[in-house]
Amino acid sequence: MTPDDLLNNVSRRTFLKISAIWTGGAWIVGIPGLSSQSYDVLTREEADIMDLLADCMVPPDDFAGGKEAGVTNFIDQQISRNGYLTEDRDLYKTCLPALNRTPLKEYKKHFLTLDRDARIEYLKKLERGFYDHSTAEEIWEPFIPSHFFAKMRDQCLMGFYGSPKHGGNNNYVSYRMIRF
């Protein structure tokens, strides 16, 4: 069969074969993300920052938080060469270290060492655009802090609530949590 045949003759047989797959009723079960300590794109420090952000977005309680659910793994996998969010790779590589350093001036600490209340206060300011136009923030360039926050928040929720096949939602924790 030439490629032309393949293209032009989707025969009845092929069609029925595909319908049969349809009626097969097999459900794809996701592969839970590996809780590996090494990542494709993120450095150890970037992963630590991401873990902490993931736990701020979805804090651990009687159900796993973002970190334990594999949100960092989801992000790393999606911004890697074979992921769906490859174009966000530079965003994370620039903004995670910037997010960690930005509190130095105001809080005298990196994001990673802020205490819980200061951490939340800082992130709320970041979300509201408080740091978007402050002069010391060329470390974020060319990105805008509040835009990064919005995207990171959204992608943390994708990692926590989306299908485990993409690297997050370990053991379907969010599905169990909401009793989906």
């Binding site: 797959i21 349809w22 459900w27 299908s163 993409h166």
Partner: peptide, 18 residues
């Protein structure tokens, strides 16, 4: 087919962020 995408909400036709 259903086998191609399964129950993956992040690539489904109603909300397709990925």
């Amino acid at each position: 087919t259903h086998e191609d995408h399964g129950n993956d909400e992040l690539t489904a036709q109603r909300s397709f962020p990925l």
